[in-house]
Structure formats: C-alpha cells, structure tokens
C-alpha cells in the first residue's frame, strides 16, 4: 500500500488527551509539519500554556517549557533573550492569552519580541469545563453565563489579535481557521510565514486559529465545525491583520 500521509517527525507517538473532534490536534500537526519542513527540530523551543493544550510538552518532540497560566509570552521572552537564534513559539488558548495573560502578550508585541504566538481561539475555557472566556460570543451560553453572555454586564468579545497587530513591534498577525482542507493549508502557510519572519528577526508574530470545542459547545464534531464557521468566524473574520516589512529587520536583539 502506498503511504499518502505520515506522522510528522516532531510529534511523539503517544495517545493524546483531546476530545474526539477537537481541532487542537490539527493545529499541533500543522506546527509539527512546519518544524519538520524547516528542519528546526533541534532549533525550536515550544512554550506550553495552561488550558486544554497544557500537556503538549509531551506531544511535540522538541525542547519544551511549560509556563504558568497566561505567562507563556514572558517565558518565551526569557528563552529568546538567551537564545536569539532559536525558534521560540507559545501555544495559547483564548482564556490564557486574552484574560489572565493579556499584559504579557501585549508587552511582548510592544517590545517586538522575536517570538511567535500560536493562539487557539475556541471562544470558551475548555479545560476548566466550559466557562465564559473574553472571546465568548454575545448571548453565548457557557457554564458561567448560563443565560447567555450578557454584553451589558460582561462586555464584548475581545479583539486580541487586533490589539496585538496595532503595536509597532508586531510585524505579522493573521487569523485563520481549521475547518476544511483549504483553511487548514492556509493555516499551515500562516504558521510557516510567522516562523520564517521570526527567524529573520523581523519582530513579533501571531497566528490566531479559530478552532472548536465540541465538548463544551455541546455539539458533535461536524456541528461544531459548522458553528465555528457560522458564528465564531462572523465575530472573528479570518484574514491577514498585519504584514509589515515582511523581510526587513526592525528590531535585532543581538
């Protein structure tokens, strides 16, 4: 039989803990494929955050540092300042990045820190059981907004990647989704672009990826993909939010 698809080298062959139909796994695979293709296994450091993806330090077969909730960009900064030549990326959920970790993310962008944030946005706190996130949609029912997110009381969905893109130190910000082969390919290209920019020491890069949480959305995997495209994407339109001076060096940290 002809092998049409193989496991990327930098993914460990162990069982993952993600729920059936969850798209975290797709994003992991894309990151792994890009690291493989760029031949960076020995030159990459991943920073795991706290959320459903918090055990991915066991999934990627590269050096990993597991950060406290929200602090991954600060941890990545510490690593990058010692090892400016290595690829340093964080993998963060929307609770991690947009609530508790807002300050660390914004200031990493402000400094033009040469790191890449991979931001998995599913509009909810997955790991802790489906609580409201700053990204939750208006009227969205979660375990802490059981009557639907009331924007008068809890505010509107946060525009985190837009805020990061506003900072001069941010050279590249793109929002993608992982709902079908075309969008998955696009996401992979975005990750590669961000990594390449980082290696050229261009500055801060972020790829926001709309993903699912079928378990806490209360939907089956296919319904969840549909909901992501119809509802989440409506609030968070995909596309390039910033792509400035792609190949010039704006801040070389030695």
């Amino acid at each position: 039989m002809k092998k049409v698809i193989v496991k990327p080298k930098v993914l460990h062959n162990i069982p993952w803990h993600y729920c059936p139909g969850c798209t975290h796994g797709i994003v992991h695979r894309l990151i792994a494929e890009v690291i493989d293709e760029m031949d960076l296994q020995k030159d990459a450091v991943g920073v795991a955050s706290v959320g459903c993806s918090c055990f991915n330090y066991d999934y990627f077969d590269i050096d990993m540092s597991a950060a406290a909730h929200g602090r991954a960009p600060a941890v990545a900064t510490g690593i990058k300042r010692v090892q400016p030549g290595r690829l340093v990326f964080t993998y963060q959920g929307d609770g991690d990045l947009c609530a508790i970790g807002t300050a660390e993310a914004i200031h990493a962008a402000v400094r033009g820190e040469n790191i890449t944030i991979i931001f998995y946005n599913n509009g909810i706190y997955g790991m802790t059981g489906g609580q409201m996130a700053p990204t939750s949609l208006p009227d969205m029912k979660t375990t802490t907004s059981p009557y639907g997110r009331n924007v008068q009381e809890t505010g509107f969905p946060i525009k985190m990647t837009e805020m990061l893109a506003l900072q001069e130190g941010c050279v590249y910000a793109e929002r993608t989704k992982v709902s079908n082969p075309a969008s998955i390919n696009k996401t992979k290209k975005a990750i590669r672009k961000a990594f390449e920019l980082q290696l050229s020491r261009a500055g801060f890069t972020i790829v926001e990826i709309l993903g699912t949480c079928p378990t806490n959305w209360g939907l089956d995997p296919l319904q969840a993909i549909k909901w992501m495209e119809e509802k989440l994407e409506k609030q968070y339109p995909t596309g390039i939010l910033k792509n400035s001076k792609g190949d010039s060096v704006i801040c070389d940290k030695k």
Partner: peptide
C-alpha cells in the same frame, strides 16, 4: 554582553526568569 530587560510587571519578570533559567543561563 548581557541582557537587562525591564518587564511589564513582577509577574512577567519572574516568568522571564523561568524561561531564561530553563536554558541554563545564570539569571
């Protein structure tokens, strides 16, 4: 040839220490 960085908070600073110290650097 060292690096001084004024962090955005003490929380960020200690987590930068975590990142840098994890590489083996004296921090």
């Amino acid at each position: 040839n060292g690096t001084f960085l004024q962090a955005e908070s003490e929380i960020a600073a200690i987590n930068m220490v975590y990142g840098a110290g994890g590489t083996g650097a004296r921090v």
